[in-house]
């Protein structure tokens, strides 16, 4: 039989706890340490916190955090949209919108009460796209405002925007 191991103090046990938490020390490796752990509430709590760290770090990482987005009611996008009026007319006219209509008529929701909030971040605004669930993106760069269809192929002007900051 092995001789009785000398009792450990907390000060001696504490530096070994990371190795216990890591699974690198077992009762067979260090009986005195585990005998101390079996009876010491302070070291048990300390080890439980090390174990909490292991569990936390083993969690799958969430997706990259979304940029902070300022949400406004849709009409707050009107100045941006108005600035885009010329561009909108050019882009929307070929799709059948009556050219005499004010530009916002083409992109406003049918009933404001049901309108989704428009998301504005820096120089980017998402606007309802006329069809349910459809969104178009207005990107203002200096004096230019560009209307982007996010459903368009990747070689669309969407690449000019900052995709990470777009939410729709």
């Amino acid at each position: 039989m092995t001789p009785a191991a000398a009792p450990l103090t907390c000060a001696e046990a504490e530096p070994l706890l990371p190795l216990v938490a890591d699974g690198a020390l077992s009762p067979a490796d260090d009986p005195a340490l585990f005998d101390h752990l079996a009876t010491c509430p302070g070291c048990q709590e300390s080890l439980a916190h090390h174990d909490l760290i292991s569990l936390a770090l083993a969690q799958p990482r969430p997706a990259a955090p979304q940029p902070r987005v300022i949400r406004h009611r849709w009409w707050l996008a009107l100045p941006v949209a108005a600035a885009a009026g010329l561009v909108l007319n050019l882009l929307l006219a070929p799709s059948g919108t009556a050219p005499s209509q004010p530009p916002m008529a083409a992109i406003s929701p049918p009933a404001p009460a049901q309108a989704d909030p428009i998301i504005i971040e820096r120089d980017v605004a998402a606007v309802p796209g006329g069809m349910p669930g459809k969104r178009l993106i207005l990107v203002r760069r200096g004096d230019q405002v560009v209307l982007v269809d996010p459903a368009a192929p990747v070689d669309s002007p969407r690449q000019d925007a900052t995709p990470a900051s777009l939410r729709y």
């Binding site: 039989m1 009785a4 009762p27 585990f34 101390h36 752990l37 080890l47």
Partner: peptide
């Protein structure tokens, strides 16, 4: 093998079982 190691062994069994459960 070592009767003096039983308490520490029991502690580790309980801790491992709790961690497995979590």
């Amino acid at each position: 093998r070592d009767p003096l190691a039983v308490r520490g062994w029991l502690f580790q069994l309980a801790r491992n079982a709790a961690l497995d459960w979590l």
